[in-house]
Amino acid sequence: MEIAENAALIVVDVQKGFEEEGFWGPRNNPGADENIASLIDAWQSTGRPVVFVRHDSPKPQSPLRPGYAGNGFKEYVEERRGKGDGAELLVTKSVNSAFYGAPDLDAWLRAAGIEQFVVAGIQTNMCAETTARMGGNLGYEVLFALDATHTFDLEGPFGWRRTAEELAQASAVSLHGGGFARVVTTAEVVAAAEAGALRG
């Protein structure tokens, strides 16, 4: 795996509101936050660009609604903002895709000549997956750091219910098998980013 010198890290919706288990239900991958932090650290230490995405939910009961404490980034993310040597962008959105937010993510990436990015964040099968899918459709090389994401159990049609882990695996299979993104681990990405920085 090669990580471009200007590859972006897109950190999707790592917000305090997702800690409210009573609202979301059971989650998977308790190590996600540690992995997200290590990716941010690797990107900042190698001077690569980081995009922080925040979901401003229009739903009045959502823990992610503006003006509510849950809308803010988790502490470990907030304390890392502004710390890197590379470019940094804050994108706010009210839908699943970071490409439908403000400012325009696609325009920012293209203006910087960025062709590759890594996706991490919450939720695996919602905003992280949608951002990865759209990135693939727009022609970017997308790496999806699966173990730096997590999601929650969910009920769908016909009484079907899937656990968070089942949903995460389905996302990984769809993204990777469908050619939208390459699904990878945090350790692989960090090692490749640091190796690339040494070569550079």
Score class of each variant (00 low, 15 high):
residue 159 G to L: 11
residue 113 G to E: 06
residue 5 E to Y: 03
residue 169 Q to D: 14
residue 84 G to M: 05
residue 38 S to I: 02
residue 82 G to S: 10
residue 3 I to R: 05
residue 178 G to L: 10
residue 46 T to N: 13
residue 11 V to N: 00
residue 152 F to G: 01
residue 46 T to L: 11
residue 113 G to I: 08
residue 134 M to S: 10
residue 104 D to V: 02
residue 147 D to G: 06
residue 66 P to V: 07
residue 125 N to P: 01
residue 165 E to C: 08
residue 188 E to F: 04
residue 168 A to R: 11
residue 39 L to G: 00
residue 101 G to K: 04
residue 7 A to H: 01
residue 173 V to P: 01
residue 195 A to D: 14
residue 81 R to T: 09
residue 33 D to H: 10
residue 27 R to P: 01
residue 144 F to T: 01
residue 140 Y to V: 00
residue 30 P to E: 08
residue 41 D to E: 13
residue 124 T to W: 04
residue 162 R to A: 13
residue 179 G to H: 03
residue 166 E to K: 07
residue 22 G to I: 14
residue 76 Y to R: 04
residue 109 L to W: 00
residue 89 L to T: 04
residue 26 P to W: 09
residue 57 S to D: 09
residue 87 A to D: 14
residue 31 G to N: 12
residue 119 V to F: 08
residue 52 F to D: 01
residue 57 S to K: 06
residue 169 Q to T: 11
residue 15 Q to D: 04
residue 151 T to M: 11
residue 27 R to N: 04
residue 55 H to T: 05
residue 124 T to R: 07
residue 81 R to C: 06
residue 173 V to D: 15
residue 60 P to E: 12
residue 163 T to W: 05
residue 195 A to L: 13
residue 137 N to G: 10
residue 101 G to C: 03
residue 191 A to T: 12
residue 116 Q to M: 06
residue 186 T to I: 09
residue 186 T to M: 12
residue 198 L to G: 10
residue 173 V to T: 14
residue 33 D to I: 03
residue 156 G to L: 12
